[in-house]
Design a protein around this nucleic acid. Structure first.
Lengths: 344, 344
DNA sequence: AGTTAAAATGACAACGCTGTCAATGTTCTG
DNA sequence: CAGAACATTGACAGCGTTGTCATTTTAACT
């Protein structure tokens, strides 16, 4: 019933160790031997036992995905991306949701790492942006790859995958400017996320490049949530829109959806009276009315590359994956929530 | 650096095996010994190595969660529920997304099970409802717990957690009936999901109990997706609403949101001209305008109980968890998308 | 062909734990 | 207080793999 490496070795007429070499793709195996062993592997439908490999080997075959993110779509995408690579490489994935406000997060973390010696960790924002965590991991000698908001100029292409929120926000803002908008509001997400400042700076840079004065009164400081989007829109547009805002950048799709909701309550027509844009292109940016103009962020692809980067570090010389992309720029997707400035 | 069971044994002045007994909560350990060992465990901050336990023991410490569901909110909730129990019990979770249309799903499945001998599996709809899969697992002798749509009368409380969609649909329909609606449309989800027929039957039963004739023209057969909700609403309400529908039950929140979207396109006011209800109470039922009346389904709690049920099976006599709930009925949540029938 | 270096393979211990079974303590019986 | 019965503990093998190092085979030279 249960097929072990010994069964394969016996069938192939070689030693256990040679089979081990074959399944680990070690170089010094004769082509002919390799084929014989692989035949045996296939006929027996052999699957190496993960627990044994993890126990015996120096490197482990499980990777961890750590996240602190309420956005289910984001988490699932990241998970699927990492998972797809894991499957290909024969790794196992252990997921670890946590809260960065939680005081015993650190202990929690260590427990996880101890229990199953990990090959490495994929960290997502905002945890990937916390120095205390990075330091801890460095100290413990744990491999990791960070997915975070940043620009190509940011160095450390060896442990980081950057999402260029700056450029994407610039592009969205430029889109709105090209539609004739001048008073453009901005709904900030959580301060803990680097993406918040990156997006804000991209927005400001675009305004500057188009010779529009930056007005801090147009910026609402909130969180990346629907409710915060509602609040932000009310705060910026309430009392008859004193700032004469004609376009609103949502910090992400949820905030944009919240702004959409608030606008409806205030009787503001979208996009006729107000353009609203999102960020991330999560499924529900297509499930609002009208559908959101947003910046598409390919989280599944991003996380696949994160996993590849991790494997490259982990398996050292054996694996020199060269086609890893380390900077991703979300791209503008124009839908129905943005339109020309009718006030101009 | 790395603390093993031997270190603990040495410090406690007992044998390795006794430490093993303590951490596995085996009965025949003297209280005094237990305390001494636990002290040692705590001072050394010992964490038993999972790979070693899985390799040496007869029962494994990893459970699998299998799903084929595009709904990110659902998956995350299920995952979190199972994960929280795993954490408490010292188990590890391996997630396994798959597609039931995929032809090599079965092989895939077996591979996963072979690679890491699993303590058991938590199956979610629609996979939990496929007999071919259940048979395969039975044949392989794998423990599992199924989460599926069903009623309390359904037996097999040992391997199944039932979600009483029938009762919930009945309740929603009764709610609409009490608001004076008579021509109530129904947007069916995927046929592959048992929940679809359960919800449909609940709806029909409520109509029947209120002496309203069942009209199959009011039922749209679609899928559990936003797009399908859009299509369904258009199909049922288009061409000037010939069926004089005043209320629409969405098969789930996504379909309801789709119906909301379609209504907006058709210039129908919600809830003034049409009531729309969802199902599941996923986050975005609160992020539509107006917010959806729906049935709250506590997926995280459900999956926690699923995990508990699995552990009870797995650990046999040692664990006689008696407070496991095996039937959950989603409960009506009234929000703004349903209102009195203005046509009456 | 004879020697030597290099490549390919194998024998065996070890990874950290649990299962088995034997050995020791402890309590109870008459 | 001896002896049985039971509760508690320990010694040791083994789970299925990989790492180390020794051995054999092949290739590359004189």
């Amino acid at each position: 019933m249960k097929v072990t490496i010994n069964d394969v070795a016996k069938l192939a007429g070689v030693s256990m160790k040679t089979v081990s070499r074959v399944i680990n793709k070690e170089p010094s195996v004769r082509k002919k031997t390799y084929d014989i062993v692989m035949d045996a592997v296939n006929t027996l439908n052999y699957q190496p036992n993960l627990a044994a490999r993890n126990l015996a080997g120096t490197s482990s075959f499980t990777v961890g995905l750590v996240y602190d993110n309420p956005n289910a779509y984001y988490v699932i995408d990241m998970q699927n991306g990492v998972l797809s690579r894991c499957k290909e490489e024969g790794y196992e994935l252990v997921i670890h949701p946590c809260s960065y406000t939680d005081s015993n997060m650190e202990a929690d973390f260590k427990t996880m790492i101890k229990r199953s010696r990990l090959a490495g960790l994929v960290l997502t924002p905002p945890l990937s942006e916390q120095n205390s965590i990075i330091d801890m991991l460095d100290e413990m000698g744990i491999h990791y790859v960070r997915v975070l908001s940043g620009r190509p100029s940011d160095e450390d292409q060896d442990t980081c995958i950057y999402v260029n929120d700056y450029a994407a926000a610039y592009e969205i803002t430029a889109h709105l400017l090209s539609l004739g908008h001048k008073n453009i509001g901005f709904l900030c997400g959580d301060k803990e996320h680097k993406s918040t400042t990156e997006r804000l700076e991209g927005y400001q840079a675009a305004l500057k490049d188009h010779n529009i004065a930056i007005n801090n009164a147009l910026v609402y400081e909130g969180q990346y949530s629907f409710e915060s989007g509602v609040e932000g829109a009310k705060a910026l547009l309430g009392e008859n829109n004193p700032l004469k805002i004609t376009a609103l950048l949502g910090g992400n799709d949820e905030m944009a959806a919240g702004a959409l909701f608030a606008s409806r309550l205030m009787g503001i027509e979208i996009p006729e009276q107000l353009s609203i844009t999102g960020f991330e292109d999560s499924p529900f940016s297509r499930q609002t009315w009208p559908k959101l103009t947003t910046a598409h962020q390919a989280n599944d692809v991003i996380s696949q590359h994160a996993a590849r980067l991790l494997f490259r570090k982990t398996r050292g010389a054996r694996n020199q994956d060269k086609d890893i992309i380390t900077t991703f720029t979300p791209s503008l997707v124009i839908r129905e929530s943005s339109g020309p400035n009718s006030a101009s």
